[in-house]
């Protein structure tokens, strides 16, 4: 069962919920090679202003490939074979992202849509200071800013994510994993973007640090009003965090609904399996699912789709 557009009554009460900021229509991404791998199949999504959209699925299901396609970060052999990605700007203009020329695309990146990547360890250049890496965003996108203004802005965003601004003189290896990820989020905030794509931003961190960062993301979203695409394999986390959730399986979105509906009435068997595969402290959820689930015995452990995973689509 593929539900691309949930009925309006289930729409979350997010600010500006009616106004989309990013629309993906029938997007297909393939990896060319001896055997062409169809990593993203006919995906349609709508991200509304200020909304947190969760993208869940196992490793290799194509969720990162989808996210990278939106910002056109793919290089050969990955290729968007069909579909459209439209960005609805604050000022009312629509941008056809797949049709942007190189220079337009470069200007679009980060200023309207920024990203936070998975590898907190490796997403920062190891040989230059955090300050240099924050500032080169500003020197490139805001050439009119003075040195003092740049400094002040960098300190401001670091302060926003709870990193002491003095740490901007550090090199990445001098920071802890959690702090590095906070720096990445600060960097993503620099240009006040309308959309932030977070690709497993907390996967490498322990649960306490993870919690702190998630709380930070929610707070910043409320303060600054950007929309978030949050990619993870951790469905329970998404249930707590997101307004709406899309569940991906082998390149397709198999279920797309509000977090509430998806939790209470999962329709696709894979969603049910994902929900069941996480232990519950009280056992309540498992009981709930068994009561409403199909007659089939509950599958324990990870979903049995590993064999069918398309090779080479780990991103």
């Amino acid at each position: 069962m593929t539900t691309h557009n949930p009925p309006p009554r289930t729409a979350p009460p997010a600010p500006d919920a009616a106004r989309p900021v990013l629309t993906v229509r029938d997007l297909n991404v393939v990896y060319r090679g001896d055997r062409t791998v169809h990593a993203v199949k006919d995906v349609s999504l709508t991200l509304h202003r200020g909304e947190i959209l969760g993208l869940a699925g196992e490793s290799g299901c194509g969720k990162s490939t989808l996210a990278y396609a939106v910002n056109r970060l793919h290089e050969w052999p990955a290729e968007v074979s069909s579909g459209t990605v439209t960005f609805h700007d604050r000022d009312g203009h629509d941008l056809d992202l797949l049709a942007l020329r190189d220079e337009e695309l470069r200007r679009f990146r980060w200023s309207k849509l920024s990203m936070v990547f998975q590898g907190a360890m490796n997403a920062l250049n190891p040989v230059t200071t955090v300050r240099a890496q924050l500032e080169d965003v500003l020197t490139t996108h805001r050439p009119g800013m003075s040195k003092q203004q740049r400094r002040a802005r960098c300190a401001e965003v670091l302060d926003l994510v709870g990193v002491e601004p003095g740490r901007m003189h550090s090199y990445p290896h001098e920071l802890s994993g959690g702090m590095r990820q906070r720096v990445m989020i600060a960097m993503a905030l620099l240009l006040d973007p309308q959309v932030m794509i977070m690709d497993e931003p907390t996967t490498a961190l322990d649960v306490l640090v993870q919690r702190g960062i998630l709380r930070e993301i929610l707070r910043l979203r409320d303060e600054l009003g950007f929309a978030v695409v949050f990619i993870t394999h951790d469905l329970p986390l998404l249930l707590e965090l997101s307004d709406r959730i899309a569940v991906m399986l082998r390149g397709e979105i198999v279920e797309y609904d509000t977090a509430e509906t998806l939790y209470r009435h999962p329709r696709h068997p894979y969603t049910r399996q994902l929900l069941e595969s996480f232990p519950s402290l009280t056992g309540e959820r498992g009981a709930f699912l068994r009561a409403t689930g199909p007659a089939s015995p509950p599958a324990a452990g990870p979903a049995p789709h590993d064999q069918a995973r398309p090779a080479g689509s780990t991103r």
């Binding site: 910002n71 970060l73 470069r106 200007r107 679009f108 990146r109 980060w110 200023s111 920024s114 990203m115 990547f117 998975q118 590898g119 490796n122 997403a123 920062l124 250049n125 190891p126 080169d136 965003v137 490139t140 996108h141 990445m184 960097m187």
Partner: peptide
Amino acid sequence: AEDYILTARAKGLRNRR
């Protein structure tokens, strides 16, 4: 192929930089 190169591209920096 490093992640920080991907980050740099996503940051919208000029190719030369």
